[in-house]
């Protein structure tokens, strides 16, 4: 049994409510990502999928606080790591791309320089060498005319190109894990398809594992091998992507899939009324009591 790359065990996260009470945002989340695997977290707003990724990156802002659990990255508990060590991992071994690349890129610096900085910072390359590598990585993310584009500022690029630059920066140092938080939500569908294909191909070629966070089941299905469904701070179901979509077991997953208009279903069956999730789930507060994890994963998690 190979060791998981990322092993999140019973992660609990809270935000203080008033002076004494704590409001739980994550109520004991556990999942594992194997080296090179693409794992998807799907859920609606407020389900806790984004705070999970921020916790892995060590980017939780006060007043959010981890109240329990472990995040093991290559066997090392990230929650116990000093800030200095964490900074060395971030951008180097664990990289992240965000929904809106414009806010994540420095508007006053050329994109070439921003990518080059990753090589200087994490690999101790000279600036001259790093700039060459930056142009090369722009080419790798299929930015046309990479030498010319490297001299552009972020505002001179379209949303799709900026997201490619973000990907180039994230993958610059060949990280073991790429965290992608809704990276294509702000993009047009055709651009989204290109960016998704890019992430998929580059990560597969380099053996980079992906933690992909999205509210869009279709996007998750197109990129991930395994999916975890989050609801209200809990992982309610986890399975192989195909199996999860073909035979969802948790009622929330079933509701979510039924609520989605599917392309082509009207042609096949005529217009079906979409499932109203509230009509099949009697009591939302009981939802998080039951959970389904595939048997294989349960075996795998035994120490």
């Amino acid at each position: 049994m190979t060791m998981p790359l990322l092993d999140i065990r019973d992660l609990r996260l809270s935000v203080p409510l008033g002076r004494f009470a704590l409001h739980p945002l994550l109520k004991g989340v556990s999942f594992q990502i194997m080296p090179g695997e693409a794992y998807g977290l799907v859920g609606e707003s407020g389900s806790g999928k984004s705070v999970t990724s921020l916790a892995v990156m060590g980017l939780l802002k006060k007043p959010l606080a981890v109240t329990g659990g472990q995040i093991l990255f290559k066997g090392q508990n990230l929650l116990a790591l000093p800030m200095r060590e964490m900074r060395r991992l971030r951008g180097n071994r664990i990289a992240m791309i965000f929904q809106e690349p414009m806010t994540a890129l420095n508007p006053l610096s050329t994109v070439g320089r921003q990518i080059a900085e990753m090589f200087v910072l994490h690999q101790g390359k000279s600036w001259g060498e790093a700039e060459k590598l930056a142009v090369e990585s722009l080419g790798n993310v299929r930015v046309p005319n990479p030498d010319r584009r490297a001299k552009n500022y972020p505002h001179q690029m379209s949303g799709g190109l900026r997201q490619r630059v973000m990907i180039a920066m994230a993958l610059a140092c060949g990280p073991d894990l790429l965290i992608a938080d809704e990276p294509t939500t702000a993009l047009d569908v055709t651009v989204q398809a290109e960016v998704l294909r890019l992430i998929k191909e580059l990560c597969a070629a380099r053996g980079t594992a992906v933690l992909f966070i999205s509210h869009d089941l279709g996007v998750i299905a197109s990129i991930c091998q395994r999916v975890g469904v989050m609801y209200s701070g809990c992982l309610v179901e986890e399975n192989e992507t195909r199996a999860l979509f073909d035979s969802p077991r948790h009622e929330y997953t079933r509701g979510l899939l039924g609520a989605l208009p599917r392309l082509g279903s009207r042609s096949e069956q005529g217009r079906q009324r979409l499932v109203d999730i509230d009509s099949i789930i009697a009591d939302r507060s009981k939802l998080t009591e039951s959970r389904f994890i595939t048997p294989r994963e349960l075996e795998g998690s035994q120490p």
């Binding site: 055709t190 989204q192 398809a193 279709g218 998750i220 299905a221 197109s222 979509f245 599917r262 082509g264």
Partner: peptide, 8 residues
């Protein structure tokens, strides 16, 4: 063709 579809 660009629509990511869970059934695809």
């Amino acid at each position: 063709a660009a629509i990511p579809d869970p059934d695809a």
